[in-house]
Write a protein that binds this DNA or RNA. Sequence first.
DNA 1: ATCACTTACGGGTGACGTAAAAATC
DNA 2: GATTTTTACGTCACCCGTAAGTGAT
Lengths: 277, 277
Amino acid sequence: MIEMYLLEQLCAFKEYGTLSEAAEHLNIAQPSVSRAMKKLEDELGVALFERQKNKIVLNQTGLLAAEYAKRILDEERNMEAQIKAFDRSLHTVNIGSIAPGPLMVLLPRLTALFADKVVSSDIETEEALLQKLNRNDYRFIILNRPLDDEKYICKEYITEQLYISVNHFHPIATQKSVTFAEADGQHFIMYSRVGFWENIVKEKMPSANFYKQENLEAVGEIAANSDLPSFSTNITQKILPSRQNGRINVPFSNPEAKANYYLICLSENKRMIKDLL
Amino acid sequence: MIEMYLLEQLCAFKEYGTLSEAAEHLNIAQPSVSRAMKKLEDELGVALFERQKNKIVLNQTGLLAAEYAKRILDEERNMEAQIKAFDRSLHTVNIGSIAPGPLMVLLPRLTALFADKVVSSDIETEEALLQKLNRNDYRFIILNRPLDDEKYICKEYITEQLYISVNHFHPIATQKSVTFAEADGQHFIMYSRVGFWENIVKEKMPSANFYKQENLEAVGEIAANSDLPSFSTNITQKILPSRQNGRINVPFSNPEAKANYYLICLSENKRMIKDLL
DNA sequence: ATCACTTACGGGTGACGTAAAAATC
DNA sequence: GATTTTTACGTCACCCGTAAGTGAT
């Protein structure tokens, strides 16, 4: 049987042209490659090279062999990658969401439910979420609209209401509710990974400025130490109570400020949704 | 890098179900297989088996790995076969002919021309000859009709005239020539691999019997020691003079008893025909 | 003189075998 | 008791490296 290391060295020789160069790139000594090529010829019982005294080149058969070798090496590398990826997928639960809010509620429950697995999540657009769900990159996704398709299982999960978060001195602080139009034109501190909410607020408050923060902690810190408004929701108010110190939350009254979230998975994974609910 | 012997042992385990059985079929000791499977898991950094105290089975990842392993092993075996076949083809010149006669003339010349190669030949039907010529299984073929096709180079080679070969006491021995009709109904000794001639004589002498001999030598021997007629041609008379002892050769006068042979090769191999003529 | 390949020799990894133990049927 | 897997240990193959030699540029 032809072992991989022989094929690897053959490929390296074809690529680099001389035994020395090949050895260099393989990080082995040159005589090793010389010997390996002899061994390859020996095992195949076929000449793969034309040798002069201090020169060696692949003959026609050798070129053919090198092509096959490359194919096999590629497949071997592919095998390795696929197996590792598959194993990883067995040990991780990937969740994609259209917004961070529902993840704050869902992730703690998931880590408890899949105690033996790594739970990881990402926030993406609906399009990307669906694509990856179909590729099985995600086990669940969370969207802000239901999907009516036999391909999927879709369950209503939770709702989220957007608030403006201001300090006591802010004019809006005294209102029972606020509209996007009323809040427009201001400067907001905003977490950068808010998913679809970003589109909503930018569209509804076209004159506002948004200072985006990559770091979730930083949003709270900066808001607490400035007079700038920020955003909160019924979910962040519960999950991040520390952020509420000295802040008044006033709900946006527009219908777009309320989101109904749906937990979605492929029909074939029906059981997972059941376990979760 | 995952070496082949690991993949081989993985496949054997998948096929035979236990380490012991696999080892048996691989002709190695069972602990070797146990160790190899551990090493495989180690190199991949992934569990491929579920182990109980004296039981070991492939897990989902292991099944996937075994599938990939099989694919790679198959490719490796294919590579080996293809390379050997290619090398062989470089060192052999295969000729196919519609009849043995022209080969008797051509082969000695070919072996001289391709002194460094093995010359081998076969007798087949026109259909098979053309198919294999197109597949490059044959470098030349010999047919009894010209081919007018740009794909091929076609050169007239030699002609062959069929004779009936009888002893002095046979009634036909005194004739200058004979027709198939006149010779019909007799029992002939015949070499079994005469190519298209077999169709000719069977069609033209439907009442004759043909005693076919696999061995070319035997045809001469038997004919010499019996009163049965056999066949000869201008070519065999020259190439196998010993067969003529005590035999009279009378030519068949029918036009079908004369064959014009053509040497044919693919246009891309034009040079070879030139070398030959 | 430098470069490229081969040959020769020595060393260490590792693949295999044998033996024995543990566990299951 | 038979079968299966694992562990332990010794051996040998073989893959690699170093060093030296040959031939070509």
